[in-house]
């Protein structure tokens, strides 16, 4: 049962998103085309100044391989920089809590995580990272990883629009223009809005406050590695504590929060991420945060239409994304509104009403309820954001399967900034190839012939992430260090591991957080999945861009398969579902599907 509130929230969300995405698309097309933007001449002067000091020229064209090499070296240097700052933070300024240097394996994982736009966090921000690390290393990479994704999308779109060109653009120009014209100004406005709503932005030391009512509680004892201690019978060892004071973490939160959402990064300043009141203070900030995740991915659909000279093509891609999003969001809203059979057996009222949102409220904020929590979960995993306002690990089995599937589709349902667009265009190439096989014509897309080389590269790009996810999961569940991190035995423990690798390889960053993943084993294995899930996909996509740019544009004829109508939208949706889900059906059957059957068979 889905409540009317959920449906209204979803409808209003999509309507406001569409209204904002249209002007954003016009703006992005100008940024991607390299044309001057009226009224922003002062930014153009800054842009030219940056090229001068960098020794590059805006007009210097790059082949796809030069573009790829620049992108890879830039991002590898970013990883090294973030690693170094974490390992030296104790001796660096802006560390009022005197937080220790981050351990080597955690620093490695985090550095790869933020450079790959994944923002998987094995650590808790307020107990691990100094303000300098958060601002200089992590927030900096939030901008650069987002700009990298958008740059690749621009390069691929321009390749479709190009006529017999050797160049796909200039990486430094794409990176600079995206950061300067899009990410920085929108983030600045967004951060000020967040502060106006109650998000904090300061360099204060943490505040100790006295509780009005001391709290006595029991908690599990952990060993030095953070793993739960167990007694001779295998039961968890617990201790009873009384808290009279609470430490309130401070910091420059709003400036990181804005780009965290806008750049589909998702790595929270605090461990509780957007469930924390200093990151996401009100229902209004929550709605705006949800909008900001999809703003650039949706805007890029309209930018695609403008840059290839046929706005209907952008609508078709947006239509396919929206169909997939609404279908899967409806499923998670339904699943989370269900009464939990274990609680129903105890006679607990789980019906939606005037005083409660009902449904499965474990791991959710009462201030957000089922509707906003489930919608946020769908948005954050459809895009490669990974910010959370509820604990996905506590979702119902089918409710938790939706975020899992949205990631496993390859993060193309709106997807990450840039990465959603280039991922969906790769699926579109596959769709026209399949259609070409069916009708016996050489496939074409957006005026370019799709031939053997493009299909080889498309195959690599599509198969990289399932290979990393399934191989990584298999290794983890076979080895003791992998199974040691599971919080639950059986099917749900498997789901936790599958979720971790799906999240890492698809650069999402959210987790079934019961998994204790801040160990050398998971830090290393997930870093491999994150790097290659990002860059081993970008390389063949840039190769496709290079090949397409060199081709002539073919005029539309009576025999050309139209790629702007509902038939193509259906074909594209079918291709994404068939290719995306079929890779994972056996794994999903062992995880969330078994959990669902076990839960409702009792």
């Amino acid at each position: 049962m889905i409540t009317m509130q959920s449906l209204i929230l979803l409808a209003v969300y999509l309507a406001v998103l569409l209204a904002l995405a249209w002007p954003m698309g016009i703006y992005l097309a100008r940024v991607g085309d390299g044309t001057a933007i009226r009224g922003l001449g002062w930014l153009r002067r800054i842009e030219d100044f940056l090229y001068r000091i960098a020794g590059t020229s805006a007009s210097a064209p790059m082949t796809w391989k030069t573009y790829a090499l620049a992108l890879l070296v830039f991002n590898a240097l970013g990883v090294l920089f973030v690693y170094a700052v974490q390992r030296l933070q104790f001796w660096l300024p802006l560390n009022p809590q005197a937080l220790a240097n981050v351990s080597p394996d955690s620093a490695f994982n985090t550095a790869v995580s933020f450079a790959s736009n994944t923002n998987w966090q094995g650590y808790g921000g307020e107990s691990t990272m100094s303000y300098l690390t958060q601002m200089l290393a992590l927030t900096g990479q939030n901008f650069f990883s987002a700009a990298t994704g958008i740059a690749v999308a621009f390069a691929l779109i321009r390749a479709f629009a190009a006529r017999s060109a050797n160049s796909i653009g200039n990486f430094w120009v794409d990176l600079t223009r995206t950061t300067l014209y899009v990410l920085l100004p929108v983030s600045a406005v967004f951060a000020v809005f967040l502060v106006s709503q109650g998000a904090i932005q300061n360099f204060s030391a943490y505040k100790d406050v006295t509780l009005l009512d001391p709290v006595t509680y029991t908690q599990a004892k952990n060993d030095a590695d953070g793993q739960p201690l167990k007694d001779a019978k295998g039961e968890p060892v617990t201790e009873t504590l009384t808290a009279k004071t609470q430490t309130i973490a401070m910091g420059p939160v709003a400036s990181q929060e804005a780009i965290k959402m806008l750049g589909t990064n998702g790595g929270g300043f605090f461990n509780a991420n957007s469930a924390h009141a200093y990151e996401n203070p009100t229902a209004l900030t929550n709605f705006v945060q949800m909008l900001s995740i999809f703003l650039i991915p949706a805007g890029l659909c309209f930018a695609l239409g403008r840059m290839v000279g046929d706005i209907r093509q952008g609508w078709a891609v947006l239509g396919a994304m929206t169909v997939l999003f609404v279908g899967l969001t409806t499923l998670v809203l339904f699943a989370e509104q269900q009464a939990h059979p274990g609680l129903a057996a105890l006679g607990i009222d789980q019906a939606a009403g005037a005083l409660q949102s009902g449904g499965n409220m474990e791991g959710k904020e009462t201030r957000f309820g089922i509707s906003a929590s489930a919608l946020f979960a769908a948005i954050t995993t459809a895009a490669s954001c990974g910010a959370v306002i509820s604990m996905h690990d506590s979702f119902m089995p089918l409710g938790g399967m939706v975020p899992l599937v949205l990631m496993q589709l390859g993060e193309v349902v709106f997807g990450g900034v840039g990465s959603g667009m280039y991922g969906m265009l790769i699926f579109a190439i596959l769709a026209v190839f399949i259609a070409g096989l069916m009708i016996g014509r050489t496939p074409e897309y957006l005026g370019k012939k799709i031939q053997s080389f493009e299909m080889k590269m498309t195959s690599i790009a599509i198969l990289v992430t399932p290979t990393l996810v399934l191989a990584g999961t298999a290794i983890a569940v076979m080895l003791d260090p992998g199974t040691a991190g599971m919080a639950n035995p059986g099917a749900h423990g498997f789901s936790e591991v599958l979720y971790a690798f799906s999240s890492a390889a698809n650069n999402n960053g959210s987790a079934f957080a019961g998994l204790s993943a801040n160990t050398p084993f998971y830090n290393t294995l997930l870093a491999i999945a994150m790097w290659f899930g990002r860059f081993a996909m970008i390389v063949p996509i840039l190769a496709v861009a290079g090949s397409l740019a060199a081709k002539k544009r073919i005029d539309v004829t009576a025999g050309t398969m139209p790629t702007h109508g509902p038939l193509f939208v259906a074909l594209l949706v079918g291709t994404v579902l068939l290719v995306g889900v079929l890779n994972y059906v056996p794994a999903l059957a062992l995880g969330p599907v078994v959990e669902h059957l076990q839960l409702f068979a009792r």
Partner: peptide, 30 residues
């Protein structure tokens, strides 16, 4: 320990560059 992870990062870069080289060689095939 730091040297291990720094080498790993450089290895990531080199493997991905090798992938680019491999993709390019596929393109040059007749």
């Amino acid at each position: 320990m730091d040297i291990v992870f720094v080498v790993a990062i450089v290895a990531f870069l080199l493997v991905t560059c090798a992938l680019a080289e491999g993709c390019d060689s596929l393109r040059r095939e007749p």
